[in-house]
Every structure is written in C-alpha cells, then in structure tokens.
Amino acid sequence: MLVYVEGRTKVKKVAILFLVIILTLAGCGQTASGDKGTDRRSSQSPSKQIIVSAAASLKEPLEDIEKLYEEQHQGLDLVFNFASSGSLQKQIEQGAPADIFLSAGQSQMDALEKQDLLVQGTRIDFTGNEIVLVVSRDNQNIKSFEDLTKANLISIGTPETVPAGKYAQETLKNMKLWDSLQDKIVQAKDVKQVLDYVKSGNVEAGIVYGSDAKSSDKIKVVAEAPAGSHSPIVYPGAVINTSSNLAEAKVFLDILCSSEAQAILENYGFKRVNY
C-alpha cells in the first residue's frame, strides 16, 4: 500500500513537471508567432493543413506547385505524403488522414472510388507520362529494350503495387521479353528505388517514367517504350471524402490543372493530357 501511495505522488510530480514544460513551450510558441504576426498578417489566422497523398513520382513538380498554391492562398499549408500509389491507396482505405489523393495509376483510384471514398465529381486526370529505359551514364552495353537480355540484373517497380512497374511489365510482355527476363528483375518498392538501384550500379538498367529519368544526371534514357506497348499513362487526382477542407482541396486540384502548374509538370518530363 505504501508503495502504491509513493507511486501516486511520483506520478503527480512527473505530471506537474510535464505541465510546466508544456506551458513554457506554449508560451514560447505564442511570442514567436506574435513576432511573425507583425510582419505577415496572414499568419495571424490559424494556418489550415491540406494533406496531399501523392505518388512518389510527383515529388519535384508538386514541391514547385506548392509554392504557387501557398502564395495564392495564404494561411493554407500543403503537407505532402509521398509513397507508392498502392501504399497510399491502402493508407487511405485504413482511414489515414488525407484531403487529396494523386495517383500514378487508375486502378488505385478506381479502388477508392468503388469504396465511395472519393468526393463525387472531383476526380480528374491532371497529367500524363511515358515509360523509358534508363541506364547509368557510363553504360555502353544497353541501348534498347532488346539489349536487356544481355544484362545480369535490371529493376522495375513491383507490378502489383507500383503503376510504373505495371506499365513496365506490360511493355516487356508486349515485346515478348518478360519471360526471358523474369529471373533478372529486382522488384523495387517504388520508382525512386529503381533509380537508386541504377545509380548505384547494382543493377544495369531500370524501367521508369520519363519524368523520373529527368531527375538525375547520373542516369541516361536509352529508349522509349514503343507507342501502344502499354496502356496510356494518366495521373488521376481526387478529393478524399473524409476531408474537412473540401473547398481548399478543390482549389488545389484547380491550380494543378492551371497552365502555370501544367508548365511546371511538363518541365519535369510529364506529358500534358487532354481533358
């Protein structure tokens, strides 16, 4: 019993200590934001967070577009969650907080739509892409998809979860290369990992999006997947219906389709789609 009482007072002491710390921290925070408030009026209104769950391949352009959006809508703070479209789909299904989902594949968006997780009428194809074969800068062996049979190891995204991997698989199957290459294909968790494998030289070639190939000068594009060898690549985006910031989320999708944002996307190697 004595031990129990002692335990209680200890807990109380710790709790008081925490309270003091928290109050001190909160006080600090207030003065800090107060200082800022004199410089920028906008930060006085509490900034709302818009969570965008986006395919990893969209990282660079979205970070540019973020500036565009936050400039035009002060007080709004875009928070990105980058992962493979498959993981993001799972996260959203499990109830992870997200206002917007930007997928690299239609099937992930279809799955969410079927489960009524999207706000109706907000789904839109906002950009497109193409599939290319990349090798490290000093590789002279591989110049075409057919040359892949000479490679020891190549990498693509896991076809079941990574849309770029699925398109790569389609391309290889279409070119009748899949069966002979299967044993050499390291399946990566996302496109960035494919690029890392190629950059580090641990695999000789990778199949990625045209936009990803532009992100590094350590790699070079040696071939583009022939037209019609895979289904067209369009990126769908939509507002998730658990979003409490519906209007702001819709505005973000509008900005994504604006000519300024489209120019940014094209700059990063994405292909404009016709709405």
């Binding site: 896991t158 050499k184 390291v186 968790k189």
Partner: peptide, 8 residues
C-alpha cells in the same frame, strides 16, 4: 538481396 520472385 532485393525482391526477385523465385530467386531472392
């Protein structure tokens, strides 16, 4: 070892 179905 990466993820190569059937090999690793």
């Amino acid at each position: 070892a990466g993820n190569i179905p059937g090999k690793t």
